[in-house]
Structure formats: structure tokens, C-alpha cells
Simulated scan of single mutants.
Amino acid sequence: MTQVLLASRNAKKLEELRRILASTADTAGIEVVGLADVPPFPEAPETGATFEENALAKARDAVAATGLPAVADDSGIAVDALNGMPGVLSARWAGGAKDDLANLTLVLEQVADVPDERLTAAFVCAAALVRPDGTEVVVRGEWRGTLARKPRGTNGFGYDPIFVPEGETRTSAELPAAEKDAISHRGRALTQLLPQLRALSM
């Protein structure tokens, strides 16, 4: 059994990442472990200008500290009317504390005067796989949609309650987990990593 470290302390994100990997065929030889399963190590703050830079930095730190192949992601929402913001600042848009409700409330306030037809946005996820031999793979998944004026739904986390995927009337937070995983930005990114993940267990 090959262990792969998911370098995240966000419990809800970790659950989602594990769920996506578990639902995928041909990863039976892989055991997914989280940061709580390995000895603590210093984690650098997310200072990258892009999702890709942050994901790679987290995965590199995890490999250096544990010797395990590591997958890390950085994700957020890019609102077109806000010139792509909050972007990499999504988790701390309303300040230092990672307060989901405060973050999405601030976004809604900032687009209050934007017409409905211009409330387009995308969830973005960059996922990095770094191996102990130095091999690095970075992929990007995007999930386009629009913003709802008010939060709806209790599934998911972050900006899920105000994001309505293209072709949907439900928010991401109103979608069942399996349905969301199949089409989400994280699902799309991790699907691209599958060939490299499968190779780890061969």
C-alpha cells in the first residue's frame, strides 16, 4: 500500500479530496493520509501570486518534511466583476480569520450593484503532486457559473452557497456530494492527476 499525503488542514476540504479519490477507479493501492496523520512540521504561509504557486509550495513542504509523495491544492473563487478577485485571497477575503460567512457576505456586498447578467464567476483549483524524487506535476481545474444574490444550501463550504454552476439552478451547496464531486473544480483537477497517482502504486 502506497501512502500519499494530502497536505491540507481544512477538514472539509480534506474530506472532499479523500471522497473524490476514493470514488475513482484504479487507486486501490493508495492510502490517503492527512497532516494529522504525520508528525507536525512548519508550514509556510500562502504567499504565492497564483493558485499554482501556493499548491506547489504546500506540496514541496510536505514532501521535504515527511518523505511521502504529497498532493496539495489551492483553490478559490474568481469573480469577473471583481477583476478575478478574491482569487488566491478567497479564504481570507474578509480578514485574517477564515470565516466563510464573512467572506461570501463581503463578496455579495461588493457586487450588490452589478447586474445579474454580469455576475459570472469561476471556482478555480490548482492541484500539485510532488514526489520524493523531485518530480512535480501541477494541474488546474475550473468550474464556471454565476453568483446567487443570497446564500442557499448547507452542503460544501466556502463560497458554495452563492455559486450556481453553469446549467444549474441549484447552488453548489445544494448539490449532493457525489454530484458536486463529479463536476467541481477539485474533481476536475484531481482527475487530471490520476495517471500520476496510479503510477505511485505500481
Rank of each mutant, 00 (worst) to 15 (best):
Q3S: 15
V4F: 01
L6A: 05
L6F: 14
A7W: 01
A7L: 03
S8K: 03
S8V: 03
K13I: 11
K13E: 10
K13P: 12
L14S: 08
E16N: 00
L17T: 00
R19W: 11
L21I: 12
A22V: 08
A22C: 09
T24Q: 12
A25F: 08
D26E: 14
T27K: 02
A28T: 14
A28K: 11
G29F: 09
E31G: 11
V33G: 09
L35S: 04
A36C: 10
A36I: 12
D37G: 11
F41T: 13
P42G: 10
P42V: 04
A44K: 15
A44Y: 08
P45K: 11
P45W: 07
P45M: 03
G48C: 05
F51Y: 11
E52Q: 14
E52W: 03
E53S: 07
N54G: 08
L56D: 02
A57P: 04
R60P: 09
A62S: 04
A65K: 06
A70K: 00
D73V: 06
D74M: 04
S75G: 04
A78R: 07
V79L: 08
V79P: 00
D80I: 06
G84I: 04
M85C: 10
P86D: 03
P86W: 01
G87E: 01
S90Q: 12
S90R: 04
S90W: 02
R92G: 14
W93Y: 15
A94K: 07
A94N: 09
G95S: 10
G95V: 07
G96R: 05
G96C: 06
K98Y: 06
D100Q: 02
D100T: 03
L104G: 00
T105A: 15
T105R: 08
L106Q: 15
L106S: 02
L108H: 01
L108P: 05
Q110I: 03
Q110H: 15
A112N: 10
A112H: 12
P115A: 09
D116L: 10
E117C: 12
R118G: 05
R118H: 15
A122R: 15
A122S: 15
F123Q: 10
C125D: 00
L129E: 05
L129P: 07
R131D: 13
P132G: 06
G134N: 11
V137M: 12
V138W: 00
R140V: 15
G141P: 04
G141H: 00
R144G: 13
R144M: 08
R144Y: 13
G145L: 01
T146A: 14
R149T: 13
P151T: 09
P151F: 09
P151I: 06
T154K: 07
G156H: 03
G156C: 00
G158S: 01
G158I: 00
Y159P: 00
G167T: 09
G167V: 05
R170S: 03
S172I: 02
A173R: 00
E174G: 03
P176R: 09
A177Y: 03
A178G: 10
A182S: 13
I183A: 14
S184D: 04
H185S: 04
H185P: 05
R186L: 01
R188F: 06
A189M: 07
T191E: 13
Q192P: 06
Q192S: 08
P195K: 03
Q196Y: 13
R198Q: 15
S201R: 11
S201E: 14
